[in-house]
């Protein structure tokens, strides 16, 4: 089997975050990673980016002093919710 390039390996590392790789892709990638320090770093970085995204979202959603629903939007939603066929239907 021909050794995959770093570019191909980086595509598989990324795609593998979304969907399971085929057995052939998995083995090819494993072999490449075993020999390639740079791609091992890339894989760690990609994993770290995922962690950072999850933490970023958690920071935003739990930050009580964070962004507030703008007053105009709040009013618009109130209208949509509670006027006409509102809560006491």
């Amino acid at each position: 089997m021909k050794m995959m390039t770093c570019k191909e390996a980086s595509h598989l590392i990324s795609a593998g975050r979304e969907c399971p790789l085929s057995r052939r892709e998995r083995w090819g990638l494993r072999l490449h990673l075993w020999l390639c320090d740079n791609c091992r770093r890339f894989e760690r970085q990609v994993r770290f980016l995922g962690l950072a995204m999850r933490m970023l979202a958690r920071r935003t959603e739990t930050d009580a002093s964070g962004p507030e629903l703008p007053p105009e939007a709040r009013e618009r939603i109130r209208q949509a919710l509670y006027s006409g066929d509102g809560a006491d239907r």
């Binding site: 958690r58 507030e68 629903l69 618009r76």
Partner: peptide, 24 residues
């Protein structure tokens, strides 16, 4: 709950307008 829903949506949709719509 409006504020919490909004922040949850904003963290994911990254767009104030889309987040407001999602809350509504």
């Amino acid at each position: 709950h409006g504020g919490a829903l909004y922040r949850y949506a904003l963290a994911r949709l990254r767009d104030a307008h889309r987040a407001e719509e999602a809350v509504q």
